[in-house]
Computed example of a mutant assay.
Amino acid sequence: MDSEDIYENAGRRDIKNTTGAQTQSHGRDEAKDLKHRGSRCLVLISVGLGLICVLLLVFIILLNITITAERDMIKSYKNTVEEFNQTINSLQHNHTDLTQKNLELETKVKDLTAEKNQLQRDFDSLNKKNLVLETRVNDLTAEKSQLQRDFDSLNQKGPVCFFMSTELKSWSDSRQYCRDRGADLVIINTEEKQKFISSLVSEKVWIGLSDRETEGVMKWVDNSTLKQGFWLKGEPNNANNEDCIEMNFNRGKPGWSPLNSWNDLPCSEKKKGICEK
């Protein structure tokens, strides 16, 4: 073997040795690299699992918070609904009370309206009565003035005295009562005197007129014949042998007035008499 072959073989062995060494080194590096990559995968997996756990924990916490909030909200809704129901019941109760009070007020208004209408009618009636009374007062005032004038006129003709008997007597006894005192039963021959005498009496009294001598022929106690009479409606009627005349004082009797107050009666009736002196 020549030297070139030796060198060539030696070179081949060196190359072979070098290649083997490099191969071994490269294997070790790959193993390390694989181990390194495995560790990194484990770390990443662990981190991922940890993040998943954290996320799950956060999700559970949030879910719990949400459930609690929803539970509180539902409870709040229930309370609100109950309050609304109570409010509605209270409003319905108040509405019922108000409706009842409204009906009572309407009834009271109707009663007050009816009472007001009745009062108005009473007021109108009182006004009418007041007008009637005012008219009556005016009439009485005028009558009083006329009587005063009549009285003054009678006084001008001479002093006249009128007085009433104090006892109830027949017509004849009443006339005698007057004559015992220098007078006689009154003679009434004018409207003025009739009104005046009517104003003096407040009861039924005998006057000096009768038809005892001749039925239907009325004469005064001085034997003068009646010229003007002041009879009640339907009188004289001689219903029961009525020959003597009274002045009837009855302001409430239909048809009565100071100029319509005479009535014929039996002469035996007991009455007071009005005397003229």
Rank of each mutant, 00 (worst) to 15 (best):
A69D: 12
I188S: 03
T141K: 13
T23R: 08
L62R: 06
D97Q: 12
I45M: 04
R181M: 05
Q100F: 03
C53T: 14
L200R: 04
D152F: 06
N89R: 04
Q120N: 13
Q146W: 06
V221N: 13
L126K: 14
D264E: 04
E246C: 06
Y7D: 14
S145T: 08
R40T: 14
L185E: 00
E134G: 10
D184P: 00
N250C: 09
R40D: 11
V109R: 09
L168K: 12
I245M: 08
L56F: 05
L62P: 00
L51I: 13
N240I: 03
E143A: 12
E276W: 02
N79M: 03
E242H: 06
K129P: 00
E134P: 02
K16Y: 07
E191F: 01
I274M: 01
G273Q: 11
I60M: 07
L62S: 13
S198R: 04
E30M: 10
I274R: 05
S198E: 08
K219Q: 11
F59Y: 10
I88N: 06
M1W: 05
R149T: 15
I188M: 07
R40L: 12
R13L: 13
G234T: 03
Q176G: 03
K272D: 02
G255A: 01
E8W: 05
E167K: 04
Q22I: 14
E70N: 13
D2L: 04
D124M: 05
F196G: 00
T107F: 04
F123E: 05
S145E: 12
S125H: 11
T96Y: 07
G182R: 06
G252D: 12
Q194M: 15
E70L: 14
E115A: 06
S25F: 12
L259D: 01
L185C: 01
D111F: 07
K270D: 10
W231A: 00
S76D: 07
S170Q: 00
L200E: 07
N9S: 08
Y177Q: 01
H93G: 13
N89M: 05
D5N: 09
P266A: 11
D124I: 06
K272A: 04
V201W: 00
T214S: 15
S153F: 10
L62F: 09
F151N: 08
A69W: 14
D33G: 09
C275D: 07
I67K: 07
I88D: 03
S224Y: 03
E213S: 14
D173R: 03
Q120L: 11
E82S: 12
Q228K: 15
Q118S: 13
Q176W: 05
C244K: 05
S153I: 05
N248K: 12
T214K: 15
E70F: 14
R251F: 05
R71T: 08
P258M: 07
K195E: 08
A114V: 02
N155H: 03
L63Q: 07
T68G: 11
K272V: 10
L98Q: 08
Q228D: 13
L133T: 12
K78C: 01
T107L: 09
L226F: 07
R181N: 06
G27N: 07
K157C: 01
T18V: 03
R28L: 08
F84W: 04
N238C: 00
N189A: 11
N127F: 09
D150E: 09
M218S: 02
H93I: 02
N155F: 04
A31F: 02
I245L: 04
S257K: 03
L147P: 01
L126F: 13
L51A: 15
S39G: 07
K227G: 09
L209S: 01
L42N: 12
